[in-house]
Simulated assay, not measured.
Amino acid sequence: MEITEESSSSGKRKANPLNYKRNVIKKSRVPRKPYTNYKGDSIPSKVMPPPPLRSCNAKCFEKLPGKEFDENYERFYSLDNKDSQDMFLQGLINIRDIQRRRARVQIGNKPKAYASVYHVYKRSVKEKVCLSAFTLVYGITPGRVRRVRDLGALGKSPKDKRGKNPSINKLR
């Protein structure tokens, strides 16, 4: 009897981590595709939020017409995983020193160590915007921006640490 690649003598299938349920959910979650979560609930695809009715003092939303708004959103979600998305965001956030410090009474809060400037692309040129416009254009939360910004201030690149811990059910 001749052994082929499909049937081995041990009778076990080869592992294919790309088809694991956990990895399929993780991959479909990043690029806005509809997916079924671990509980079995169907999650619809992410839709671009509408621009707000009120604008900031710098009129950031008026700087970005609908076309640039859509292009930024599509460019961000066309990236294939969360690490590349976070690196993209980190490239759009500039960290700089505080320009002027004022003597104030501190009540429990420590002073800021740095200031940050947020940008979005407008015809392949970076345009300065406020934090609320930055989060709305890319459809992300301020917490994610804060994490990416703080890692950039420390000189670290963001890494996705989800699912990297060893399984507690694994037999040794």
Rank of each mutant, 00 (worst) to 15 (best):
P34T: 03
A15F: 05
S45C: 08
K67Q: 08
Y73N: 15
A15V: 04
N37P: 04
V47A: 12
R54I: 12
K21E: 08
P49K: 13
I43A: 01
K12E: 13
A58Y: 15
R32D: 13
D41C: 13
F61G: 04
R75V: 01
I43L: 05
P44I: 15
I25A: 00
D41K: 06
K67D: 13
N23Q: 09
D70A: 10
N19H: 00
E71R: 14
K21V: 12
V24Q: 11
R54W: 09
E71S: 02
K39R: 15
Y38C: 03
N19V: 01
V47L: 13
P52N: 05
K12G: 02
N57L: 15
A15E: 05
R22Y: 03
P17W: 00
F61N: 15
A58H: 15
C56G: 14
S45G: 15
I43E: 01
Y73V: 01
T36F: 03
N23K: 10
N57M: 14
K14C: 08
K46N: 04
C56L: 13
G66R: 14
P52F: 10
N37Q: 12
C56N: 13
S28E: 11
C56S: 13
P50N: 07
F69D: 02
R22W: 00
P44K: 14
F61W: 14
E62L: 07
K27W: 05
Y38G: 05
N72I: 08
K12M: 06
Y73W: 15
E68D: 11
P49F: 08
K67R: 11
V30D: 00
Y20I: 00
I43W: 05
K67N: 06
P34G: 07
N37C: 08
A15I: 08
K67A: 09
G66P: 09
E71M: 11
K63F: 06
P50S: 11
N57I: 14
G40N: 07
K46Y: 12
Y35Q: 05
E62H: 14
P50Q: 11
S28W: 03
K67M: 06
I43Y: 02
K12L: 05
F61R: 06
K63M: 13
R32I: 07
A15Q: 01
L53I: 08
R54Q: 10
Y20R: 07
N23A: 06
L64W: 11
A15G: 01
K26R: 12
P17N: 01
K33E: 12
E68Y: 14
